[in-house]
């Protein structure tokens, strides 16, 4: 059984003034296997963020249902759904949405605030994820004292601190230059290599090519997967990825060798 099942999801935002709302998603169905890395591409306004928040258990669909790990997410009560988000999901916002008044380690720790864990354990876990994203040395910096790429990595640290099985990311590389975007992308590949299921919205075909699959959305409807060229939707082994990756990324991790795909930036 698939880890994530999206079944005939539709979303109509009720327009406050008029009676007719804007239908943003139509009959969207998709499945994600456990440990899969799936990208979502589509033009601006096509409903990518909407679909992601629906998958993120924080935006009630107008129709259809979302089942994650056998749990019908929107059948849960609001409070139980919050617990579900805390337990199952890591969400990386496009604009990061870090708390400006908390320093890096506090931001990373934020999802642990509601958990019954000792202060030392929370700190340990937060430090471990900061380490993972390469920010261990900047734990006491405030977000505005971090570069854009560092902020992105901090947002990822926050998303994975509770060790969620499913990580959702909304254009995490959108505002970054190729090199910094590459670092972020590498982080996700790294997470994926450790077993986390990843669903990522991206505008960058190079990123998409590193994923197992890419879904395409247009005007709120998913394009049939068969329409997508194969080399663009799936990774194939031994494609000489390493040689084309920025040197920095390779230095950071040996894991990368195990992954394969097309080189960055065509």
């Amino acid at each position: 059984m698939s880890f994530v099942v999206v079944e005939n999801v539709g979303k109509t935002y009720s327009d406050r003034g008029s009676r007719t709302g804007a239908t943003v998603l139509r009959n969207v169905s998709a499945r994600l296997g456990e440990g899969e890395f799936v990208c979502l591409m589509g033009p601006s306004g096509s409903g990518k963020s909407t679909l992601l928040t629906i998958l993120g258990a924080m935006n009630h669909p107008s129709e259809g249902k979302v089942v994650i790990d056998g749990i019908d997410v929107y059948a849960l009560s609001d409070e139980r759904r919050a617990d579900f988000r805390s337990e199952y999901l890591g969400f990386v916002f496009q604009q990061h949405h870090l708390m400006p008044y908390l320093n890096a380690i506090e931001n990373a720790m934020l999802p642990l605030a509601t958990l019954r864990l000792g202060a030392a354990e929370k700190r340990r876990r937060a430090l471990a994820v900061l380490e993972k994203v390469g920010l261990a040395g900047k734990a006491s910096r405030l977000p505005n004292q971090l570069s854009g790429g560092e902020q992105g990595r901090l947002a990822i640290a926050r998303a994975i601190v509770n060790d969620p099985p499913l990580v959702l990311a909304d254009e995490p590389t959108g505002t970054l230059d190729t090199k910094t975007g590459g670092e972020i992308m590498k982080l996700f590949l790294d997470l994926n290599a450790r077993g986390q299921t990843i669903f990522m919205v991206t505008h960058n075909p190079a990123n998409a090519r590193l994923a197992h699959r890419t879904l395409h959305i247009r005007d709120g409807a998913l394009a049939p997967e068969s329409d997508c060229p194969r080399e663009q939707t799936s990774r194939t082994p031994a494609d000489g990825l390493d040689s084309e990756l920025p040197a920095l990324m390779i230095d950071r991790s040996g894991d990368f060798d195990s992954l394969s795909g097309k080189p960055f930036g065509d």
């Binding site: 993120g56 924080m58 609001d78 409070e79 919050a82 617990d83 988000r85 805390s86 337990e87 999901l89 969400f91 916002f93 949405h97 708390m99 934020l110 999802p111 605030a113 509601t114 926050r158 998303a159 509770n162």
Partner: peptide, 16 residues
């Protein structure tokens, strides 16, 4: 508002 939304999104309950 946005901050509260973020907290809710990362798993804070209403009661939190």
């Amino acid at each position: 508002t946005r901050e509260i939304g973020v907290l809710r999104a990362i798993g804070f309950r209403r009661t939190h």
